[in-house]
């Protein structure tokens, strides 16, 4: 089996279809790339994998049953990572998983396992931090609007968190970096494409709430123990662009 540069459309389904192609069409990838990021490789043929929901579902169910639900979650969150060069590691992780079963997550000696764990951890960490750091603002229409610009594609993870927390009122989480938004209407959320910039009109109470928050934030710090390094270690600067108290 000679190797190919495997190209896919950039969706999770596409990546899972590359796994399908490896087993059923004997397509051994030397590198897995999305169409947009394609970089030719010397001496290797290209192979385009078309996304097929049926095939992807088979692979996904296989991961859940033959490896473990935890491994499926790792694959999903690692895939959401904004890091480049993640696809090959995820592919290798899945293939190793089909060979070894649930114990794949114990194999920390393997680079691909470490890499997938790291990608998943980074994405999960950012989603966790944002679940605290993201700030909603009350709009004129009464819904709550929140803008984020995360490194990883955490919109859906965040939406799951807030669907449970703010069950009774409408809200929007807007990923300005990727131009998509999670819109919740009081029942369920959908993820839609959105422009990268949005003009939002705030309610009358909004300024008041912000002033109160700013006052609380600056007063709660103990002056005798100021430690800006610790503050920066926990609340990284790149989060602060969307956090009111740091503007």
């Amino acid at each position: 089996m000679s190797g190919y540069v495997v190209l896919f459309d950039g969706s999770l389904d596409g990546l899972l279809c590359a796994v399908y192609a490896y087993y059923y069409d004997k397509i051994l990838p030397l590198s897995i790339q999305t169409e947009d990021e394609y970089q030719p490789m010397l001496g290797a043929e290209n192979y385009f994998v078309a996304s097929d929901p049926e095939k992807a579902k088979r692979v996904w169910e296989g991961i859940r049953k033959k490896i473990s639900p935890g491994a499926a979650y790792n694959v999903y969150t690692a895939f959401l990572s904004g890091e480049v060069e993640k696809h090959m590691a995820i592919f290798k992780y899945i293939v190793l998983g089909f060979k070894r079963g649930a114990s794949v997550d114990n194999r920390l000696q393997e680079d691909c396992v470490l890499r997938v764990h790291k990608l998943a951890r980074m994405t999960g960490y950012e989603a966790h931090m944002l679940s605290g750091f993201c700030r909603f603002a009350e709009t004129k229409q009464g819904a709550y609007y929140c803008a984020i610009s995360p490194k990883h594609r955490v919109l859906q993870l965040l939406a799951e968190h807030f669907r449970d927390r703010f069950m009774n009122h409408a809200w929007v989480i807007h990923d300005k970096k990727r131009g998509e938004a999670a819109v919740y209407d009081g029942n369920d959320y959908v993820i839609v494409d959105a422009p990268k910039d949005a003009a939002v009109e705030y309610s009358d109470d909004e300024t008041r709430a912000r002033d109160m928050w700013a006052a609380f934030f600056s007063t709660i710090a103990i002056k005798e123990r100021v430690n800006k390094n610790a503050q920066r270690r926990h609340a990284a600067l790149y989060f602060r662009a969307n956090m009111l108290e740091f503007l």
Binding site: H128, M129, S131, G132, F133, R163, D164, R165, F166, M167, N168, F217, S218, I220, A221, I222, K223, R225, V226, N227, K228, N229, A230, Q231, R233, H234, A235, M243, E245
Partner: peptide, 26 residues
């Protein structure tokens, strides 16, 4: 878990919402 009747939920791991100038979690 959140409820239909109320506002909010609680998370066992705890969530920090910001960090004050003394480096403490708020």
């Amino acid at each position: 878990k959140g409820t239909r009747a109320g506002l909010g939920s609680a998370s066992a791991c705890g969530i920090c919402h910001t960090f004050s100038a003394d480096g403490r979690c708020v």
